[in-house]
Design a protein around this nucleic acid. Structure first.
Length: 357
DNA sequence: AAAGCGGGGCT
DNA sequence: AGCCCAGCTTT
């Protein structure tokens, strides 16, 4: 193991001349820090920053977020992904507003009990907002510590992660927690990057086991491999002369929960669903519908790659011959011009954009 | 412990 | 095509 004091000293010395300026760093408001940390979970700073600016402008404090409509919160999150973050964010805002007098808790033990806040985020808020000494262990930190210490064991293993946490927890002692944590993440994202790290510029190069053994490409090692399953979604755009369209909300414990989409049928493979199935589906909106009461044409196909899914989208345009319609719970008849008030998965918003032009 | 959960950027 | 990103929750 690299000497703890040497590690901390070189890190902080590097950071004193290489601090990143980020919008949420101007604030000690735990609400602002909370929002920034949730947005940045599994999300690059560059991708998350515009969302952060928009989100704290729209929802400037706990009470505003607690009082907002769920649709508006999801809309602010549209396109960012991992939408449970947005749902948990508002749920926690409601809890804080009603049970904690609108105040953010100021101890690690209370913070980590909040929905959507795990070990990393609790440590980040505790240190950045309240100056408490808890080490942040994110992807950057795991990479830096596993490399300098030449850890070849899988880092997605509980015991390995514990040893990394223990190392950082010792290293942070005696230093300003916020500065130390920020320094470690900045260092990981600027120097000790995943591919082709800048070892030539690294102040720890003389002490780094991975560099000495030429193993920066192998460390950190992850045992788990992602496998993607295919899903086939057939979306129906009901083209109506009054420029209104039907959208539905996803409610199950599945991808894109709480987002909106078009009426849809899922199939097991890429074959087009049989007419009878489509008619049955459209029967949600049109009573006594028969197979020849509508015209259908396939308009386009697209694919969206998620971490663990390939989503194949098939889009069909439907023209009703008898347009009497009924709308049920969780379904909406929306004017085309107002559809942008709702949050959609990217595969749907891309399609809606394409038929606008 | 393993699986599920988005979207984008880089190699 | 594969990997990673200021991870967390559910099973």
């Amino acid at each position: 193991m690299m000497n703890i004091d040497t590690f901390a000293g070189l890190l902080l010395s590097w950071w004193s001349e290489n601090k990143r300026q980020l919008p949420w760093k101007n604030s000690h408001d735990p609400y602002i820090i909370w929002i920034s940390e949730i947005i940045l979970q599994q999300t690059r700073v560059k991708q998350g920053t515009p969302y952060f600016l928009k989100f704290v402008h729209t929802f400037p404090d706990i009470q505003t977020l607690a009082d907002a409509s769920e649709d508006d919160v999801m809309k602010a999150w549209e396109g960012l992904g991992y939408y449970s973050r947005a749902r948990n964010l508002q749920q926690t805002a409601k809890v804080l507003a009603s049970n904690h007098g609108g105040k953010f808790p100021d101890t690690y033990e209370e913070i980590i009990q909040l929905k959507g806040i795990g070990p990393y985020t609790a440590a980040a808020i505790a240190s950045f907002a309240f100056g408490l000494s808890y080490p942040v262990v994110d992807g950057n930190v795991v990479r830096v510590v596993s490399r300098v210490n030449g850890i070849l064991e899988p880092v997605d293993n509980k015991a390995t992660l514990q040893s990394i946490y223990g190392y950082v927890n010792k290293a942070i002692q005696g230093h300003d927690p916020a500065s130390f944590n920020q320094a470690l993440m900045d260092f990981g994202s600027a120097v000790c990057v995943p591919a082709s790290p800048a070892c030539i510029l690294c102040p720890m190069t003389d002490y780094c086991m991975a560099n000495k053994d030429q193993k920066t490409q192998l460390i950190p090692f992850k045992a788990k491999k992602v496998s993607r399953k295919n899903r086939y979604y057939h979306y129906f755009y009901l083209d109506r002369p009054d420029r209104q369209m039907i959208i539905t909300q996803r409610t199950g414990s599945d991808i894109w929960k709480k987002l909106y989409e078009l009426p849809m049928v899922e199939t097991e493979d890429e074959s087009v669903p049989v007419r009878g199935l489509i008619t049955q589906k459209l029967g949600f909106w049109f009573s006594h519908l028969k197979d020849d009461d509508y015209i259908m044409e396939e308009v386009c196909r697209s694919r969206q790659v998620l971490t663990h899914r390939n989503v194949y989208g098939f889009f069909y345009r439907i023209v009703m011959i008898n347009p009497a319609i009924k709308i049920n719970k969780g379904q909406y008849l929306v004017e085309r011009e107002k559809v942008s008030n709702f949050a959609f998965p990217k595969i749907i918003s891309d399609y809606l954009k394409s038929i606008d032009s």
